[in-house]
Amino acid sequence: MEMLVASAIGVMTAGGIYLVLRLRTFPVIMGISLLTYAVNVFLFTSGRLTTGAPPILRDGVAIYADPLPQALVLTAIVISFGMTAVVVMIGLGAFLGSDDDHVDDPTDENEDRAGDAS
């Protein structure tokens, strides 16, 4: 089980990194989202893996999943929505303003690329 979770984190991280290094805003945003999943799951697993023991107190139950990483990740998920929204807005604003959705500033070599962007 640990192998599955750890490899899932690894795969999502790798995919996220690759997409963040792309040249257009949309794949970069996808990459950031993937990285967010990976990081959230990574943080969540710092409480180690527990099945069938949610941290809801019950009489006669002694083993619970670690509630603290859960609480921290819960807010992280909501905040990451806010951050994604801001990044998307910035990317969208840049595209609407310049008809160009490259993440890199134009340099001398690719100055004329804006025209064929769409």
Binding site: I9, V11, T13, F42
Partner: peptide, 9 residues
Amino acid sequence: GLATFALAH
């Protein structure tokens, strides 16, 4: 990806 995998594992 490998690094995070190793760390998490």
